[in-house]
């Protein structure tokens, strides 16, 4: 049995190693050194070796179940910043629309599915946590003139989930740490040491994601990917793809330069429009059928 200090020290050494193709060999070698120094047993060393081999991979190593647990906590942190808009009818509408769009995405079956919640804020913001928990502010809803435009907002967020942009924000060193801890635990239930170490890694991973979501924003390339995913899903379900362009035009007029919302975390709507038009052309928005307009207006009343 190794002491907590030795255990954390070993984790720090392994986690500090750079992620590269030789990661598996270095991790395995480090573990063998630790074994020969009597810090850990040979069995544990072998388990770390194989764990480190996996560590050479990436965010793709998270199972959907782990993605779900990461997403739950990211969602809980978002809800420390924003209050829910607790209107049942409005949230039911957004969930029906959003979950339908998600079903048509390239990643429809997450561990526990997609779920949407409106936030009571005038900020123009929408945030997607890994695994499919998606949050949309009233300010963002106000950028949407009709159901097709709201579908564009929701489909863009579904795009971030299906492309796993949140998980990609996690630094590789965290994944290495997690896998190393799990290698030590092997197939047995986690002990107190492992649980404490894993929880620390968990917290660091959450910080990576939330600082990206709330402060820095995804890369321009990721935003364009989410826009591309959005128009694909909208076409599959039957919404007008031009609605994404129309929504961005509305947003452009409403965003406050220097604001702490989409203005800070997203590329200029004008740039997104230009990129989108390369994909979908210069299609104009057609009229919305009457029943679709009527239910969207009813939703807007609930949001007022």
């Amino acid at each position: 049995m190794i002491s907590r200090r030795e255990f954390m020290g070993l984790l720090a050494v392994l986690a500090a190693l750079p992620a590269c193709e030789t990661m598996g060999q270095i991790g395995a070698a480090g573990a063998q050194v630790a074994a020969s120094a009597g810090m850990i047993s040979q069995d544990q060393a072998d388990e770390i070796g194989s764990g480190a081999k996996q560590a050479a991979a990436s965010f793709e190593d998270f199972t959907p179940e782990q993605e779900y647990y990461i997403g739950r906590s990211v969602g809980a942190i978002i809800l420390q910043k924003y209050k829910p808009y607790a209107n049942q009818a409005a949230n039911a509408y957004v969930n029906t629309l959003g979950q339908t769009l998600a079903a048509a995405s390239d990643y429809p079956q997450t561990y526990r599915g997609y779920h949407f919640l409106l936030l009571d804020s005038e900020d123009i913001n929408a945030l997607a946590a890994p695994g499919g928990l998606i949050f949309v502010t009233r300010g963002m809803v106000n950028c949407c003139a009709n159901e097709d435009e709201l579908s564009a907002v929701l489909a863009h967020e579904v795009g971030h989930v299906s492309r796993k942009h949140g998980l990609q924000a996690i630094q590789t060193s965290r994944i290495t740490s997690a896998l190393t801890t799990l290698g030590l635990a092997g197939a047995k239930a986690m002990g107190g040491e492992e649980l404490a170490a894993l929880t620390e890694t968990f917290e660091d991973s959450l910080k990576d994601i939330t600082s990206t979501l709330i402060n820095n924003g995804y890369s321009r390339a990721s935003e364009l990917e989410a826009d591309e995913s959005a128009v694909i899903v909208m076409k599959r379900v039957g919404y007008q793809r031009a609605a994404l362009v129309a929504m961005l035009e509305n947003m452009e007029t409403r965003l406050t330069p220097g604001g702490a919302d989409f203005a800070k975390t997203h590329p200029d709507p004008k740039d997104r429009i230009a990129e989108l038009q390369r994909v979908i052309g210069m299609t104009a928005m057609g009229r919305s059928p009457k029943p679709r307009t009527a239910r969207f207006e009813a939703f807007r009343k609930e949001m007022a």
Binding site: R72, S73, E203
Partner: peptide
């Protein structure tokens, strides 16, 4: 295995997060 309900509980208790 890995990030699971047990880890979430530990995190929740430590940081008083509301789920």
């Amino acid at each position: 295995k890995g990030f699971n309900a047990q880890v979430e509980k530990e995190y929740q208790q430590k940081n008083k997060v509301d789920f």
